[in-house]
Nucleic acid binder design. Sequence first.
DNA 1: GTGAAAGCGCTAACAC
DNA 2: GTGTTAGCGCTTTCAC
Lengths: 332, 332
Amino acid sequence: MPAEHEPTLKDVAAAAGVAVMTASRAFSKPDLVAQATREKVLSAAQQLGYRHNALAAAMRSSQSGLVGVIVTNIDNPFHSKLARGIDEVLTANSRRMLLGHSQDDPKREAELIRDMRSWRVEGLIAVPALASTPPEARFAGLPTVLAGRAGKTGALNQVTVDDERGAQEATADLIARGARRIAFIGNEEKITTTTTRLSGYLAALGENGIRRDDSLIRLGCRSVDDAKRVAKQLHSQLQPDAFFGVNNQITLGVLEASAGFAAPPLISGFDGMDFADLLRAPVSLVSYDPAELGARAATLLLESLENPEAPPRHDVLPVRLLHYGGNVTDAN
Amino acid sequence: MPAEHEPTLKDVAAAAGVAVMTASRAFSKPDLVAQATREKVLSAAQQLGYRHNALAAAMRSSQSGLVGVIVTNIDNPFHSKLARGIDEVLTANSRRMLLGHSQDDPKREAELIRDMRSWRVEGLIAVPALASTPPEARFAGLPTVLAGRAGKTGALNQVTVDDERGAQEATADLIARGARRIAFIGNEEKITTTTTRLSGYLAALGENGIRRDDSLIRLGCRSVDDAKRVAKQLHSQLQPDAFFGVNNQITLGVLEASAGFAAPPLISGFDGMDFADLLRAPVSLVSYDPAELGARAATLLLESLENPEAPPRHDVLPVRLLHYGGNVTDAN
DNA sequence: GTGAAAGCGCTAACAC
DNA sequence: GTGTTAGCGCTTTCAC
């Protein structure tokens, strides 16, 4: 007959006629227990409806098996795919992901870090929020891998995509297709994706003998709507012949704005879009798999947990510029 | 000078010259501690770099503050928005979300439930996976709210959208726009969203004097590609004049397929799409905010934790049919 | 308002 | 292979 309270190992051990420790081992180190004993324990556990208490185990062993994951915005596809990639690797390595989203707010990020530390996460994977203090300071004292956005000093492990090259190729491609006045719409300068991708854009201009025109470079867009507004404004004031969006949100904003333009500009952007083929406007996207980025970040974290003395590593995922047709119809 | 080990309350208490219990109270029940004492404790904690141990607190108090959230697929926007809505409410109520994704596989779902129970989650919010056993059996014994997909018996709390009405309105609208042979592409019959939305579709046909044609009803699509294939097949075999996609993935598949059709059919589907306005093909979508659904689910769970004796509730979120223009350009 | 004692459920460490 | 002991860091309980 089952007890009133949630059954514990003690109950199982009693029912199986063994010591608590033996019952514990039957689960966590089955090889160290005789077959017959193990079976007795497992069947007693079954009977009583025993369920392992991860809280107690984590506390006693001081190994929580938890990994904190901080993204800025869960429902941005980049971040949700990143989280899936991370979760897959963690699950395969018997860890659990503790997921939080900072909304790109350093205060919320700090709270998340504090909360996650209180759960004794073994490490952290984070897309660092927009902040004036460098990630190295904010994530000090806990094994951390930065994902997507790079750090300042290189003191942390990080996994990014090939930001500079991606932006450079996309910009060069716009130029090859005839664009000369290419608007660059970015997020804040505090984020390396914006600054590094801007470098790539500038490099492509330079290589093609096009003078940098700062009036075409607009930073500080943090949402689809920001970007939409800025793109409209740029269009009416300066009529650029092409737009480059620094990330998926900004590119969406450009696409929305451009729907209202009489003469459609060329549009290119960073980050893939699952539905790019269905869009009315032609668009070129610097693509990669965010889940792969996440998987690499998780792998890197696990490795650095294994080997705490290893120097920080910086992994860079290659990107590929893909062209989507707009009103070209699918042949098959 | 800070200690070697992670400082504990004991260290803080010693440094502050008070009992451990007093130090504990200074954090968790500040009102029960004299101002002066509290300040001593807090400053000692600060100095030592003390960090609360949620593991120990959860274990001792048997209140983990954790809520398990099981979705089928994190990087489906429906699910990621749902998760965000849930997380917002939980965070505001000082709980943490433990997120997992079942990939619509009952085995993985069972593992997740087990794992989450082992972390002593106080309750569960789940989009139940495709399974032959009813959710009521799989989620027994733990306060649970089903989200998006309904249960079988009504014994669990659940929050869904107005599936039947949404599908009925969308179908009626297709008919009003001239469609007579409307294909319905659904997921498995085990999921209530498919069955309930199918009812709505059939109701609209009935109300408009259109005979049900089972050859136009195709179930069992579990991915964008499934739906794409089925839509192409239907198109070449039966040339329906409209398609209804039972969810966002399936509607995307229909959109992809229809890009290759000479005579574009009318397309309608369940679930919103942020980028619907940018699509080449006109589409009508039964829309609602998944984050709102999540927020309601979380609220319902918290209420039922407060009041464990309350009978299960069934909350239904209204939906709205929105039309997107395809090649109509944005005026402003 | 504060403290002392006990113990949550488990596993590390060591003994046999 | 198995058992004993101790204790992870906190909060509950009860005393003062």
